[in-house]
Design a protein around this nucleic acid. Sequence first.
DNA 1: ATCAATGCAAATAATTTGCAAAAAG
DNA 2: CTTTTTGCAAATTATTTGCATTGAT
Lengths: 157, 157
Amino acid sequence: MPVIEKTTAKQKFMEFLTKKNLRVTSQRQAIIDTAFGTDEHFTADQLLEWSRDRDKSVSRATVYRTLPLLTESGLVREMDFGKNYKFYDPNYAEHPNHNHIICQDCEKIVEFESEKIAKLEDEISHRLGFSMKTQRLQITGNCEELKKLGACKKKSC
Amino acid sequence: MPVIEKTTAKQKFMEFLTKKNLRVTSQRQAIIDTAFGTDEHFTADQLLEWSRDRDKSVSRATVYRTLPLLTESGLVREMDFGKNYKFYDPNYAEHPNHNHIICQDCEKIVEFESEKIAKLEDEISHRLGFSMKTQRLQITGNCEELKKLGACKKKSC
DNA sequence: ATCAATGCAAATAATTTGCAAAAAG
DNA sequence: CTTTTTGCAAATTATTTGCATTGAT
């Protein structure tokens, strides 16, 4: 994905901080650079580790205190894939209606968008008396390699 | 919903236990009766409390050891609504493709099914190289009462 | 009898928080 | 300077687990 978009997400978050009279500390800088410097979903623990590569002084507490700000800004989305820890998705601002399909075995995650599904969701919500705000759709399945071989090699299918 | 279906779900689980050479203890009985005696989603904590109304000897450990059996049997589904604890849905066997819409404010949950969405999910999965196994779709929104009044009364909208 | 299942209490593990010191504005 | 933010370590909370005992088959 083009770097320009990521720069924008970072800038948007800076504006979000300023608007809320929150300070741009070096630790927050490192965390923001990390979060918006990847396309991947990450965990709090990974965000800490990678942020520390940029700034040794980043602590676990600060990561956990920054994550709610990231999600509150709407630029990062908290995801639950049934683990006992959460994942965070930094591609949310650009693709607010994207969905996930996860291989049951190798845990490969693919993102996709569907206009048709989004439209149906909106219709159904109205019919049930709700106005839709957000949606999350997760499909689990087996990827092709798994189907052919009976089991897929972790990290490779 | 008709009582007959619930009896069936309970019986299916008993068969599941027997097939796996697992024993039908009085504690498991109480937990099973509770789980399949409600239409509501419940938490581990609620399952413990309600099961204890039937059998004082049910312990928290046994509830936590029984829940994986319930989900493994396919009769109960683990749900994540973004809280730090999980919900369990006992209506899964009868409606394996049902979805949830949750009011952001009062946390009212409505279930629904959609053939069209299910079909689209299956198509997209194939196109992406997966064979679909399960899906979960959660929509969050505001319910009518909220829209009209600006805020909905908890438990009542 | 045998071996799975239980309750209890201690252990985990992710996340949260109180507080005194450090740093942004 | 003032107020926010930080790191640290202790606290919290849902869930898991070791172990001696109980109970289903």
